[in-house]
Amino acid sequence: MTKRDDQLTWKDLRIGSIVAEPGSASQYQTGTWRSQRPLFDSSKCIKCGMCYIFCPEGCVEQNTEGYFEANLFYCKGCGICARECWPRAITMVEEEE
């Protein structure tokens, strides 16, 4: 079983700290950076996809009903989707709440 990244010792690192598994960045949970999360209100959403286009993290996904939502494993809570959503279907709420 390979170690988790945060358990690697300096001896475990490859030459030049090279990462040899393609796509391994997908295991990195950027969601822990978040202090606010986007709440999507499907009653206001017109499925225009602007949030999907503007999300710098590429973590806005379309669900089976065609509505958009954030993948919270990656969502950093930047609020860009909420700002760009002109029908105001997205509200940023504090994580603690």
Partner: peptide, 28 residues
């Protein structure tokens, strides 16, 4: 070079290192 840039066997060089791994990279 043991792990050269090669489209058939992609590697990431100089990747992002969060605080939990940067010290290890410097130690080595």
């Amino acid at each position: 070079y043991p792990l050269p840039l090669n489209p058939d066997k992609p590697v990431t060089m100089g990747a992002f290192a969060p605080p939990f791994i940067y010290s290890e990279a410097k130690k080595v």
